[in-house]
């Protein structure tokens, strides 16, 4: 398994609950449970920043892991399985699957426990992100929250590296301008 910049925000739970199954799956590559626990939170974080909706981001990442598990014998042998899951999750975020699910999810959520939001001090960044064009937003989120290099972002987005650099530069400048304005207003 290639080590990507994907930050590990969570460790697998102690052996016991999933230990037996994990050992069996380890025989043909990386363990599914391990991958899930190591990357679920980080991927959800990225997609929350991208779509502005934590519940939807959790759904998308859960679905991406379902698709990975459905073909786990193949995905586990990839050099970088988490890159596959990340790509699928991000594609789902822009796909018609998301559009199809949106209405359904909204209905479901009426009955769900309310998921606490990120808190008022993070609203400024979310608002600033929402103003960016989608590709600039993807680039800055992948850079700052997935810790991907320009090369890795270019691979995931299937665009030249120069394009990614330009997206990053413009996205970052727009965010900084927006955040600085907010700060000034805040102090007034």
């Amino acid at each position: 398994m290639m080590v990507t910049g994907e930050p590990r925000l969570d460790e697998p739970p102690p052996e016991g609950a999933t230990g037996r199954r994990k050992d069996r799956e380890r025989t043909d590559g990386v363990g599914f449970d391990e991958l899930y626990h190591a990357h679920f939170r980080s991927l959800t974080l990225q997609l929350t920043a991208y779509c502005g909706d934590l519940s939807q981001a959790q759904d998308l990442v859960q679905e991406a892991f379902c698709r990975a598990f459905a073909r786990w014998s193949r995905v586990s042998r990839y050099d970088d399985p988490v890159a596959w899951v990340r790509r699928v999750a991000w594609n789902l975020a822009t796909s018609r699957w998301r559009r199809l699910r949106t209405a359904q999810t909204w209905l479901l959520r009426q009955r769900e426990e309310h998921v606490p939001g990120p808190g008022p001090d993070r609203v400024a960044l979310a608002a600033a992100l929402a103003l960016l064009p989608a590709n600039h937003r993807r680039a800055v989120v992948l850079h700052y929250l997935a810790d991907l290099s320009v090369t890795q972002i270019a691979q995931q987005e299937q665009v030249p590296e120069g394009t990614v650099k330009s997206w990053l530069h413009r996205g970052r400048a727009a965010l900084a301008a927006q955040l600085a304005t907010n700060e000034v207003n805040h102090h007034e």
Binding site: L9, D10, T18, F32, D33, Y36, H37, F40, R41, S42, T44, L45, T48, A49, L54, Q58, Q62, F65, F69, V115, P116, G117, P118, G119, D121, R122, L125, A126, L145
Partner: peptide, 14 residues
């Protein structure tokens, strides 16, 4: 943002 949001994520689990 990372610090604030990560604690709110509740994985459904493998």
């Amino acid at each position: 943002y990372r610090e604030a949001v990560v604690s709110a994520v509740h994985p459904a689990g493998p």
